[in-house]
Computed example of a mutant assay.
Amino acid sequence: MLPGTPEGTRKSMKKPTLQTLRAWIALCAPALALALAGLAASTAASAQTPPAGGDLPVGAVTSTAAAGKADVAPVMRPPAVDTLATIRRRGVLRVGVITVEPMVMRSASGELSGYSIDLMRRMAQEMGVAVEFIETKSLFMMQELLDGRFDLLATGLWMTTERAMIINFSEPTASEGVHLVANKARAGKRLQLADYNQPEVKIAVYSNTAQEKLARRVFPKAQVVRVDGNELLPVIQGAVHAALVPTLAPASLLTRAPEKLFLPRGEQAVSHTPVALGLRKGDPDFLNFLNTWLSLRRGEGWLEERAAFWAAQAPQTPQAR
């Protein structure tokens, strides 16, 4: 019997009618709604309160990760060739070269010589293997190294950030100074770097090289003329005021046209460009061997002696490396 039901209706309430049930539900509904609202508020408050000890609930960690940007799948390195072991089994060290004085030069009889040639011949001798020099072109040398046409590049290769993303470099084998070579007729009175940082001045550089970036940084007001060939030629012809040329021996550049060329800063370089051996990525043993060998030769003074010897040799013809 419901509370407050008249005594006269007790008999009829033993079997509640549909109308009576509806009335009872209507009476209880407000209390039930109030109870559910309180439960929801309590749940929300507990979700916002961090647990003791600084630990995050599992749900929070999952939702945080899901909210962030999905990472890319990791790039897996394919199995690498053990180059050092391959060279020893083959009995031949294969070296990629391009002709660029004084690193790699070819005589009229076809014989190769130069600073890089000396290094590779002595290295092969100490490894107890023969050496094979494979000529390539600057446009293809990186890809041919990756394709395995040769074991390493030894051609006075300039170290750059862009190249280091594709191949590994050894420790530097030498450091070439980047020198300002000028035309006497057009720039004979310009003796300071500031004299060449003028809007009317034209400076030739080999396109897409470290010296092009150097020219735009040191001479932002000058006109940088990109050359796909010998950058000294437009200087000799008088088409530009000067050129930036990397070399081991700046004085030898003047022998190309001593009556037309001069060094505004003497033998003081504008900057220096390290050169090194290039090898494929993923072969730390071969890289460690090359660096160890270079460290030993540098320690005994042999690298410096060879660099000085070849710097004093034939006049240099600038070329991209």
Results as ranks from 00 to 15, higher is better:
residue 225 V to T: 01
residue 181 V to H: 02
residue 40 A to L: 15
residue 98 I to F: 07
residue 166 I to F: 13
residue 244 L to M: 08
residue 265 R to E: 05
residue 292 T to H: 09
residue 302 W to R: 15
residue 40 A to P: 07
residue 124 A to Q: 09
residue 87 I to P: 03
residue 237 Q to T: 06
residue 256 R to K: 15
residue 38 G to Q: 10
residue 130 A to W: 06
residue 104 V to D: 05
residue 6 P to M: 00
residue 271 S to P: 01
residue 246 P to D: 11
residue 214 L to D: 02
residue 127 M to L: 15
residue 317 T to H: 12
residue 262 F to W: 06
residue 68 G to V: 10
residue 244 L to E: 01
residue 288 N to G: 12
residue 79 P to F: 14
residue 292 T to E: 06
residue 303 L to R: 11
residue 84 L to E: 00
residue 120 M to H: 08
residue 33 A to Y: 13
residue 207 S to I: 06
residue 185 A to Q: 12
residue 258 P to N: 10
residue 146 L to T: 13
residue 115 Y to A: 05
residue 144 E to N: 11
residue 191 L to K: 13
residue 307 A to Y: 09
residue 265 R to P: 02
residue 31 A to M: 14
residue 121 R to H: 06
residue 58 V to S: 13
residue 168 N to K: 12
residue 146 L to R: 15
residue 51 P to R: 14
residue 196 Y to G: 02
residue 239 A to E: 01
residue 287 L to C: 07
residue 132 E to C: 05
residue 266 G to E: 05
residue 3 P to M: 00
residue 234 P to C: 06
residue 105 M to N: 06
residue 159 M to S: 12
residue 96 G to T: 04
residue 11 K to G: 12
residue 282 G to D: 08
residue 75 V to H: 08
residue 40 A to M: 14
residue 137 K to Q: 13
residue 163 R to Y: 11
residue 190 R to M: 14
residue 162 E to V: 13
residue 71 D to P: 13
residue 292 T to W: 04
residue 203 I to W: 00
residue 71 D to V: 10
residue 230 N to L: 12
residue 194 A to Y: 04
residue 28 C to K: 10
residue 213 K to F: 10
residue 320 A to P: 10
residue 168 N to A: 14
residue 300 E to M: 14
residue 194 A to N: 07
residue 122 R to T: 14
residue 94 R to V: 08
residue 1 M to W: 00
residue 83 T to Q: 07
residue 238 G to C: 02
residue 269 A to W: 03
residue 4 G to S: 05
residue 68 G to N: 12
residue 161 T to K: 09
residue 244 L to T: 02
residue 89 R to K: 13
residue 74 P to E: 07
residue 277 L to S: 01
residue 123 M to P: 05
residue 78 P to S: 11
